Computed example of a mutant assay.
Amino acid sequence: MRVPFIKMHGLGNDFVVLDARRDTLPAMTGALAARIADRRTGIGCDQLILLEPSDSADFRMRIVNADGSEVGACGNATRAVVLLHGAPARIETDGGLLAAEPRDGGATVDMGRPRFGWDEIPLAYAMDTLSMPVGWDGLKTPAAVNVGNPHAVFFVPDCDAVALESLGPRIENDPLFPERVNVNVATVESRSRIRLRVWERGAGLTRACGTGACATAVAAMRRGLADRAVEVVLPGGPLDIRWGEDGRIAMTGPAREAYRGTFEWDDFA
């Protein structure tokens, strides 16, 4: 079975998009997604995105990390698929319903309301999620935020100096986080600008993470470090994040289609 795919990215966070809204595909498994995502023997991506019909929205988006684990939300992928859709859309995800609108070269996404309860992150036990009394090798007192995905946010003097390649997987898999966690290290440069690097659960270091930018911005705002509208600069480029008075997060940034191709399904099954 020859299957078409679309390679897309948001600030270098890259995706293989499979469109099953009209033509049904065989069942997608974590192992199959991981083989497609492999950068040496597959197509290569941070996440595989599967578009499906939805009874409650314009379409459903499933997000599978490079290691085969499925997650609830991906801000960069949402911008990419609504650009592909070519019109404003309501998108069903496991992390909730998202609304997105294409803009010139990108999109704005309503990421919904962040969650802060320890059991909503989730954590293994109750604690203050604005300043958690925990630490790992110099990274201390993170804030925890769920924006469709769980995030731990550390504010540091220089995010580029943090050994995230080694600390990221340790924190991601700590028993404190029963569903694992995305690890964000952020440097607040002004009340309107934050630099950020993210270790994504199931994908590792990526050039950009939309939900990470939202979680980091909201954590900085809750701590009084930033205004309600900030530019979050990731290795792949900037995202504009606004946390409205209604509690909803709006994320605006670019997305691009890189190329299209086909593959033989049985080669990866």
Rank of each mutant, 00 (worst) to 15 (best):
S166C: 11
P157N: 12
N13P: 09
G168V: 03
D137C: 13
P150K: 13
A226N: 07
R115K: 14
A226F: 06
P26R: 01
F5A: 12
K140I: 15
P238S: 02
G30I: 15
I171G: 07
V156D: 06
T206R: 02
V156H: 04
G95L: 14
R103M: 14
A215N: 09
G247R: 00
M251L: 15
A77S: 15
F116L: 02
A57V: 07
A186Y: 04
M132E: 12
D110G: 10
A208F: 04
M1W: 08
S131Q: 14
G68R: 04
P88Q: 07
R201M: 13
V198E: 01
C209H: 03
N65S: 04
S166N: 08
P114S: 00
M221H: 05
V218K: 04
V17T: 06
D19G: 03
A73K: 05
V156K: 09
S69W: 07
A66F: 11
R62F: 07
V64L: 12
G202N: 09
V181S: 03
R35C: 11
G105F: 01
R207Y: 09
I43P: 10
L84C: 01
P4M: 13
D55F: 08
R35P: 08
G95P: 10
N13K: 03
G106I: 00
A219T: 01
V218C: 06
T262C: 14
A255V: 00
